[in-house]
Design a protein around this nucleic acid. Sequence first.
DNA 1: TATCTAATTAGATTAACATCAAATCAAAGA
DNA 2: TCTTTGATTTGATGTTAATCTAATTAGATA
Lengths: 192, 192
Amino acid sequence: MQLNRLVEFHKTMGDPTRLRILSLLSNGPLHGQAIAGKLGLTAPTITHHLKKLRDINVVFERRDKNTIYFNLNHLVVKQHSEALKQLMEGKEISMVDQSDEKQKIIANFFTKDGKLKTIPAQRKKKLMVFEHLIKGIEKGKKYEEKEINEYILQFHDDYATIRREFIINHYMYRENGIYELNPVEMWAKIEG
Amino acid sequence: MQLNRLVEFHKTMGDPTRLRILSLLSNGPLHGQAIAGKLGLTAPTITHHLKKLRDINVVFERRDKNTIYFNLNHLVVKQHSEALKQLMEGKEISMVDQSDEKQKIIANFFTKDGKLKTIPAQRKKKLMVFEHLIKGIEKGKKYEEKEINEYILQFHDDYATIRREFIINHYMYRENGIYELNPVEMWAKIEG
DNA sequence: TATCTAATTAGATTAACATCAAATCAAAGA
DNA sequence: TCTTTGATTTGATGTTAATCTAATTAGATA
């Protein structure tokens, strides 16, 4: 987890209007005007806040005709909450003041706001990146394919490819459309 | 959990300097000048940030001679992380838009930033307040007395009284100085 | 094509806030 | 009492950000 991302996350959550928007979305998708109405604010204000919420990937949108429905992405919230708790337990902020070789390689493939620039071509590096991505997935929890897609989307548009790679390299397994994290021993080995 | 408190918490966490201070404190207490030195900032700046961190009870201080050592309070961080996750799961923001009778009584005993104004004299109300306070304690986890004190301190100065009440009314039990939450069935009953 | 609807952008206003230098405060020790 | 040391307060400065109104864009439908 990068310090920057964590700061942006909390800065975004530190506003009553945005928390209320998320609270509304927790009951299901809504379109902009509905949100504006329920909160007694104007449409531009809602657009403003939704942009910030999108920036940290905690909401995403689906279009239907002229109307855009905004959806909540629970996973991203959980991931950041976890990161903060770990920071409090003395865990290092990686890829910022970390000089470790492996961390440096990984950092090269991400933008400063945490997006994956490209999927590495080299197998070894690719696996390092996947191991990093998988960190937000909880052990022992069952995920719908849709949830996995939304989770990956915060890092990269091509969620289908990456989701497939998670399976191929045994980071996760799938059963009847339900995904779950594999134990570490099963993951593809990074040689060298 | 009140919306205001959650907003203040996240606003406070949404600053790189403050996250770095907390990261430093996770390795043990430090005094102001030490923090300033490590972060390359001036003393007034550190004072400024520590005040904000104290406001949300995520740090507390102990004096030794002329020097003030700042300590991290893990529990409060965990509590707020949990509250946010629950908000995302559709749980209501209590005591804000909640009209429920019981919630109203409780709300009367707290300031808008979550401090307990007084310990209720009436037994029934007192128990309601205790049930509210205990919400940040994790089931099945063992706590040192010191941790319990620090946890209570975020609500009220007289942590000794309240800690004792927790035991008397069977919200928690103590064994060899280690505290743990009791199952709900054991708690004192609120009649009426 | 003209029109309706939902969302966004632009620009303005106002409030909050991070940081620093200089001044002040408070406890300890000489 | 005087000095030292660590922490805080004050005031200034520059920046970020929440919200609104008015104007604009972009799809959909008639």
